[in-house]
């Protein structure tokens, strides 16, 4: 199993022919070959429809790409000015899962996207995220695939490299990953921490969940309260980055800024503990804590 993406996912790349799109599409194609998993079936670049790139067909629109390839997943590398429209185009084209890697999309654009997607069958992951990987099945993102050993631990994270760190520690503890979901570090994102945790909670092939958050916003607290209300069905191991971050300063990610007393790392960690989550103070102890909690 796994969540969001699996071996039968059919992926298109929006912003296929740009340098980022080309580089990461190549990596995703190789991942698909290595594991006989999810395939990249084509890409979109307005004005270049009918040509080929990386031996795959290029289309002018998502709608054309879906009609010709049966794609159900899209990954977006379109620059910030056009990224919001690319997400909406994917949704209108009938894509079920849109993963937006683009960093730097204006908040106003994302507000409109978020509201436009309400009630649609399209799920958005990101933006400003590393993407989604179901180990050994499908890589729809920019993460280095080899770090994610196959296994039964799910990850939900706002951060890219910290996700790789966690996955690597989990592997070194002798365990592996079912699906890792990078939800993104922007103030407005498509899929929240709680929604991603819920997917993994309901996944029969996930035994435990690593939840990695950071300062700013209420997503981790909302997820923690839901986890308890849902009956703490699976162990959740949590970490919040930014225990030493000053108030009111943006720490790299557009959303990583402490606004008040309730979105500090300390406040989030307290709420997570109160709701039955095993919180690690040190990011160096994520892997061994997962192993300990699972009795391995």
């Amino acid at each position: 199993m796994s969540v969001l993406v699996n071996k039968s996912s059919r992926i298109i790349v929006q912003g296929f022919t740009g340098s980022e799109g080309t580089f990461h599409a190549t990596q995703m194609i190789e991942y698909g070959k290595e594991f006989n998993g999810a395939q990249v079936v084509g890409g979109v670049r307005p004005g270049k429809g009918g040509t080929t790139h990386l031996n795959l067909p290029v289309f002018d629109t998502v709608k054309d790409a879906v009609a010709a390839t049966g794609a159900n997943v899209s990954i977006i590398f379109v620059p910030p000015a056009g990224a919001a429209n690319a997400i909406l185009e994917a949704a209108e084209g009938g894509i079920e899962l849109v993963v937006c890697i683009t960093e730097g999309i204006p908040v106003k654009d994302m507000m409109k996207v978020k509201h436009a997607l309400k009630g649609s069958k399209t799920r958005l992951i990101g933006p400003n995220c590393p993407g989604v990987i179901s180990a050994g099945q499908a890589k729809v993102g920019i993460m280095p695939g080899f770090i994610f050993k196959e296994g039964r631990v799910g990850i939900v994270s706002k951060s890219g490299t910290l996700t790789y760190e966690a996955a690597d520690q989990v592997a070194k503890a002798g365990l592996g990953i079912s699906t890792a979901v990078g939800i993104g570090g922007d103030p407005i994102i498509g899929t929240t921490t709680k929604e991603a945790v819920e997917l993994l909670m309901n996944d029969p092939d996930t035994d435990a969940i690593v939840m990695i958050g950071e300062i700013g916003g209420q997503l981790e607290a909302d997820a923690a309260r839901w986890i308890k209300a849902d009956g703490n069905r699976k162990p959740v191991i949590g970490f919040i980055a930014g225990q030493t971050a000053p108030k009111g300063r943006r720490m790299g990610h557009a959303g990583a800024i402490i606004g008040g007393d309730d979105d500090t790392a300390a406040a989030k960690m307290r709420i997570m503990r109160e709701n039955g989550i095993t919180v690690v103070e040190s990011p160096a102890l994520i892997g061994e804590t997962v192993a300990k909690v699972l009795g391995k």
């Binding site: 951060s159 890219g160 910290l162 980055a241 030493t244 720490m251 790299g252 040190s282």
Partner: peptide, 21 residues
């Protein structure tokens, strides 16, 4: 550090090691 989340986590590690970022 490479990556914002890992950068914040590294600051936290420094603090846990007895320093201040």
């Amino acid at each position: 550090v490479n990556g914002a989340g890992l950068a914040m986590a590294t600051m936290d590690i420094i603090k846990l090691s007895g320093g201040e970022p």
